[in-house]
Amino acid sequence: MGKLTCLQTLQYFEVGIEQGRRLVELGRLENLRGELTIRGLQLVGNKEEAQTTYLQEKPNIYRMAYLWSHDEPEGCETNDKHVKIPLLGQLKFLRHLELVGFHKVECIGTTFYAIDGNNKGNIQVFPSLKELVLEDMPSLIEWKGVELIPTTNGGRDEVIGVRMFPGLEKLRITKCPLLKSTPNQFEILRELIIEGVDSGVPLLNLCSNLTSLVKLYLSDVKELTCLPDEILHNNVSLQFLSVSDCGEFREFPQSLYNLHSLKSLEISFCTNFSSFPVPSGENYWTSLQSLQLFVVMN
Score class of each variant (00 low, 15 high):
L171R: 01
L171M: 07
R172W: 06
T174Q: 11
P177F: 03
P177V: 05
P177N: 04
P177R: 04
P177A: 06
L178G: 04
L178W: 06
L179E: 05
K180R: 13
S181P: 01
N184R: 13
E191L: 05
E191Q: 10
E191G: 05
L192Q: 02
G196S: 07
S199K: 07
G200A: 14
P202S: 11
P202A: 09
L204M: 14
L206F: 05
S208C: 10
T211V: 09
S212E: 02
S212Q: 02
S212V: 01
L213S: 00
L213P: 00
K215Q: 08
K215M: 04
D220V: 08
E223M: 14
I231K: 00
N234I: 00
N234G: 02
N234T: 04
N235Y: 01
S237D: 07
L238M: 09
L238K: 00
L238R: 00
Q239G: 06
L241I: 07
S242N: 13
S242D: 10
V243P: 04
V243G: 03
D245Y: 12
C246Q: 07
C246F: 08
G247A: 13
E248K: 15
R250A: 12
E251A: 15
E251K: 15
Q254S: 12
L256W: 00
Y257M: 01
Y257G: 00
Y257R: 02
N258F: 04
N258S: 11
L259I: 10
L259A: 06
L259Y: 01
S261Y: 10
L262C: 08
L262R: 03
S264M: 10
L265S: 08
E266K: 14
E266D: 11
C270T: 09
T271M: 13
N272K: 15
F273T: 10
F276M: 13
F276G: 08
P277G: 02
P279R: 07
P279D: 08
P279I: 05
